[in-house]
Write a protein that binds this DNA or RNA. Structure first.
Lengths: 187, 187
DNA sequence: CAGTATCAGATACTTGGAGTATCACAATGT
DNA sequence: ACATTGTGATACTCCAAGTATCTGATACTG
C-alpha cells in the first residue's frame, strides 16, 4: 500500500498554484481552466489531477489570499490605534487589484457557502490578530470590558466592504474613527 | 414606420416577469431560461424576444426588488426611530427568501458593475425615503446638522449586509442602535 | 532488470445551458 | 388580399467544465 509509480512533480503543482493566484488577481474568476494550464505551462489534465473542479482550485486560491498582513499598532490610545487600522484597511481597498479581488470574493461568498466559510473564518482570524489593540483599550478604560468587540470590528469591516462592493466613495479615516468611538448623537 | 404586424401580448410579458421574479426569489440566480419559459407557460423564444439576455432579465427583476417598503417611523426620538428601522431591516434579513436573494444580489454586484449600479441607486433611494427621520432628529438637536448621514446609514447597512453575506449571527437591534448613537467609548 | 503503477501532456469526447435560427401559425396593420 | 410581426416549438451553434484515453516518462517493487 505504499506509493508506487511516478511521483507527482511538486514544480507542476507550484506553477499551477501561481498561475491560479495570478489569474484570480488579474481576471477575477473569469478565466478558463485552459488558461490556467497555459499560464502554468502545464497540461490541462494535470490541473484537474490536483483539483477536482475549478471551484476547488478557487477555494484554495482564495484561502491563500486571506493571509495578508494585519497592522497591530500601539500608539497609546484607542483612537490612535483604530486610526491606523482604519487607514490601513481603506488603503487596501483603494488598490485596484485588491478592490477587484475583494469584490469578486465577497461576490462569490454570496452564492457559495464554502467561500463564505473561508472568508468568515479568514476575517475572524485576521481580526483576532489585532485583538490586543482592544485589550489594551479595555485596560486603559477606554472600552468597557463587556463591549461587543465583534460588533465594533464588523461595523467597520462591513461598512468598508459595502462601500467597496458598490463602488461608493470611501471616507477619511478620522470620520470613521469618530463615528465608531463617539457615535452620532450631538455631545 | 408605424407599428405593423401582430402586437406583443402584454399578458405574455407580464407572466414572464412574474415567473422571473418568483424564480429569483426561490432559486437565486440558478435557473435556466427554459425554467422561466416553463414557469410562465410561454415559449422560450418569447422570453428572448423581451430580454436580449438572461442578464438583462435579471437586471430588471433585481431592480424590481429594490422597490420594497421602507419604514418611516415617528416615535419622537432618534433612538426610537432608529430602533424601528434597525428592527425592520434585521427582520428582513431573517426571512430565508430575502436573505438568499440579498446574498445573491450583493454577490452579483461584486462581479457585475451594472448590478452594483442598480443596488447602489436602489439603496440610496430607499434611504432617502426615510431621510425625514434624520431631519427631525436634527431639528430636535439629537443630530448635528452637519452629521454625515450617509456614513450613519451605510455603517448600519454595510454591517447587516456583511453579517448576512457571511452567515454571521445578527445582533439585537438595541445593541446596534446604542453603538451607532453612543459609540464604543466608555461613558 | 522486468514489471507495473502512476504522473505528465495531448487530444477528443460528453454535458449543460445561453443564445440563434427557422418553422408553421396567429393576429393586426395597409 | 397581403405584408409584417408575435407566438410556441424545435433544432442548432457555441463555450467551458469535466471525463476518458492514449503515449510516454518516472519511480517503486520484486
Amino acid at each position: 500500500m505504499s506509493a508506487r509509480g511516478r511521483k507527482a512533480d511538486p514544480a507542476v503543482g507550484e506553477r499551477i498554484r501561481q498561475a491560479a493566484a495570478t489569474l484570480v488577481l488579474t481576471h477575477g474568476l473569469d478565466f478558463t481552466m485552459d488558461d490556467v494550464a497555459a499560464a502554468a505551462g502545464v497540461g490541462r489534465a494535470s490541473v484537474f489531477r490536483r483539483y477536482g473542479s475549478k471551484r476547488d482550485m478557487l477555494l484554495e486560491a482564495i484561502a491563500g489570499f486571506m493571509d495578508a498582513h494585519v497592522a497591530v499598532p500601539d500608539t497609546g490610545s484607542l483612537a490612535g490605534d483604530l486610526h491606523v487600522v482604519v487607514t490601513d484597511t481603506l488603503a487596501l481597498w483603494r488598490l485596484p487589484g485588491i478592490a477587484r479581488l475583494a469584490k469578486q470574493v465577497y461576490g462569490e461568498a454570496g452564492r457559495d457557502p464554502a467561500v463564505a466559510e473561508i472568508v468568515r473564518t479568514g476575517m475572524r482570524t485576521r481580526m483576532e490578530r489585532s485583538w490586543v489593540v482592544y485589550e489594551r483599550a479595555i485596560e486603559r478604560g477606554e472600552l468597557s470590558p463587556d463591549a461587543d468587540l465583534w460588533l465594533l470590528t464588523d461595523l467597520f469591516t462591513g461598512f468598508v466592504a459595502y462601500r467597496g462592493l458598490l463602488d461608493l466613495p470611501l471616507p477619511e479615516p478620522e470620520e470613521v474613527v469618530r463615528a465608531l468611538l463617539q457615535g452620532f448623537t450631538s455631545p
